[in-house]
C-alpha cells in the first residue's frame, strides 16, 4: 500500500513539474520555475564521494572500535528540476564502487533516489527523499583453508549472484558553491523497525552542469 502511495506521490511530483512548464491555452504568460539563481534553472549533477555503511554499528578492530567513516568510493548522476517556491525535485542514481582487490566476492551498491530539495538560502539546500538500495554480491567461487579450533578447515566462497533490496528514508544538506557543491547525505535503513534500524551516510562533491 505504501508503495502505491509513493508511486502516486511521485506521479504527482512528475505532473507538477510538467504542469509548471506547460503553456496555458489562454495565452497567459507561463510562470517561470522559481529558482534562487539563473544557474539552477536546469542542471545535470555529476558527483563523487564516499559512502559509510551503517554508521557506528560495524566493528573494525579487536578492541571494539566501530566504523565511523569509510572510504568506499561512490559516483553518481542526477538532475535538478525546479518546482515552486525554492523547491526542487532531485532524482539521481548512485553507485558505490566495488573494492579493487575484491576477487572472491564483488560487492556493488546502487541507489535509485528521489529527493525533494529546498533552498532556504542561495548557498544552502536541504534534501529529503527516499531511495531503493540495491546491494549486489557476485561470488567468484573457490575455497580457502582457515583456522578452525586447534586445526584448520576448508571454507568456501560462494559462486552465485545475489541481491538485496531496501527502501531508505533520506535526509541531506548541501552547500552550493557556484557550480560545485559539498553534500552530506544520510540514508535510514529499516526506519520503522527499531531493532534493525541503521543509518548510513555519504559525502559528495558535486558538479552542476548547466545545459
Amino acid at each position: 500500500m505504501l508503495h502505491l502511495l509513493i508511486s502516486f506521490f511521485s506521479a504527482f511530483l512528475c505532473l507538477t513539474i510538467n504542469a509548471q512548464t506547460l503553456p496555458l491555452s489562454t495565452g497567459a504568460p507561463s510562470r517561470a520555475p522559481a529558482s534562487v539563481s539563473d544557474k539552477s534553472a536546469d542542471h545535470f549533477i555529476f558527483k563523487a564521494g564516499t559512502y559509510t555503511e551503517f554508521y557506528n554499528q560495524v566493528q573494525i578492530d579487536t578492541t571494539g572500535r566501530m566504523k565511523e567513516f569509510d572510504r568506499a568510493p561512490t559516483i553518481g548522476f542526477g538532475l535538478e528540476m525546479p518546482l515552486k517556491n525554492h523547491f526542487y525535485f532531485l532524482p539521481e542514481i548512485d553507485w558505490v564502487l566495488p573494492r579493487k582487490s575484491a576477487e572472491r566476492v564483488v560487492k556493488n551498491i546502487f541507489f535509485f533516489r528521489a529527493d525533494l530539495g529546498i533552498n532556504p538560502m542561495e548557498w544552502f539546500r536541504i534534501r529529503a527523499g527516499t531511495s531503493v538500495v540495491w546491494l549486489n554480491q557476485q561470488g567468484g567461487g573457490g575455497e580457502e583453508t582457515l583456522n578452525n579450533g586447534n586445526t584448520t578447515s576448508t571454507f568456501y566462497y560462494p559462486i552465485e549472484n545475489r541481491s538485496s533490496f531496501n527502501n531508505t528514508l533520506d535526509l541531506g544538506a548541501e552547500l552550493l558553491l557556484k557550480k560545485i557543491s559539498l553534500r552530506f547525505q544520510t540514508y535510514t535503513f529499516a526506519a520503522l523497525e527499531p531493532r534493525s534500524r541503521q543509518i548510513s551516510y555519504a559525502l559528495f562533491l558535486s558538479y552542476y552542469w548547466e545545459r
Binding site: H3, P158, N166, N167, F189, A190, E193, R197
Partner: peptide, 11 residues
Amino acid sequence: FLYPMKGDLYG
C-alpha cells in the same frame, strides 16, 4: 548474501 532482503518498506 545468504538471506537477502527482498524489498522491505522502511522496515
